[in-house]
């Protein structure tokens, strides 16, 4: 995850031209250890099974992990473990920049210092980004109100949301800083209310084209506009996210339920106790998570 944040910083500083950046990103992608290799190293798959999954990938437009599960070679837990290993095994962007001759070691050190200063991250926080643990990363970006019960609940919600984004929508999630506001205006938002021991209004907002892409991925269908099916798919994503969240609360003896989800055009949400807003950058655009408790 550090690579994504640091990569974005480099882009924003316009230190390199776009061709150089593309070349570095391609090399970084190629340097990622293959899931098949990690699966063999972990003893989960044999070379024969990895080869079979690769051949199936030629026939079906599916990811390695999906096919390995469908073939009964991996279970969900093992896949998650391998994906985590893959993320943490990523070659650091800095190494490629140096290898490519785009930066000297001195230049990299200096750029990293600038990044820490401009981003406000401490060495410890940079380490957290490098380790990419969702719960710790969420703590970095949700600093509002310290440790009150509502902010803790919000952190739990975001942590689950990020996992679901990565699982179902896009593995390239970059969190922005969370903030609280008195009211939040949006062109369009999928909304669902959690009721019971907690009463929380939750939402997924974004520009139309981003929401359409999001909905297409989740529905597994090609959608071209924010029509009823797209709105329905966004609502279903929220329903699944909130269903899991409510289930987690239930295991802590907190009893909540869900009202039916719906889509609101041109809406203005007013704060109840605390209205949190968390923008997230996906590979195809920005979405915003809304949490109003």
């Amino acid at each position: 995850m550090f690579n994504k944040y640091f990569g974005n910083y480099i882009l924003s500083r316009k230190i390199f031209n776009i061709e150089q950046i593309k070349s570095v990103l391609a090399k970084q992608q190629a340097a990622r250890p293959k899931l098949g290799v990690l699966a063999i190293e972990s003893g989960y798959l044999t070379a024969f099974q990895v080869d079979r999954v690769h051949r199936l990938q030629v026939l079906h437009d599916k990811r390695f992990g999906e096919l390995a599960i469908a073939e009964g070679y991996l279970d969900e837990r093992q896949l998650e473990e391998l994906l985590n290993k893959q993320k943490t095994s990523q070659v650091l962007l800095g190494q490629i920049l140096v290898d490519e001759g785009l930066l000297t070691y001195d230049g990299y050190e200096s750029l990293l210092k600038d990044y820490k200063k401009d981003s406000g991250f401490s060495d410890l926080e940079i380490d957290i980004l490098k380790r990419s643990h969702a719960d710790e990363v969420v703590n970095l970006f949700v600093k509002e109100d310290g440790t009150g019960p509502v902010v803790e609940l919000f952190k739990e919600y975001v942590e689950l949301f990020i996992r679901n984004l990565v699982r179902f929508i896009d593995s390239d999630v970059i969190l922005d800083w969370a903030y609280s506001v008195a009211n939040y205006e949006s062109e369009g938002m999928a909304v669902q209310e959690i009721v019971g021991d907690h009463r929380i209004e939750t939402g997924l907002a974004g520009q139309d084209e981003v929401l359409v892409r999001f909905a297409s991925i989740y529905a597994g269908e090609t959608l071209s506009s924010l029509d009823d099916l797209a709105k329905d798919a966004l609502g279903e994503f929220m329903n699944s996210q909130n269903g899991l969240f409510v289930s987690n609360l239930y295991h802590k003896n907190i009893n909540c339920n869900l009202n039916p989800q719906h889509f609101m055009n041109r809406t203005n949400i007013r704060q109840r106790g605390r209205l949190y807003v968390l923008p997230c950058q996906l590979s195809f655009g920005k979405i915003t998570i809304i949490f109003n408790r």
């Binding site: 329903n239 699944s240 909130n242 269903g243 899991l244 409510v246 289930s247 609360l249 239930y250 295991h251 009893n255 339920n257 869900l258």
Partner: peptide, 9 residues
Amino acid sequence: ITALGKGDT
């Protein structure tokens, strides 16, 4: 069919 995996429902 439910998104609510919680026990009581």
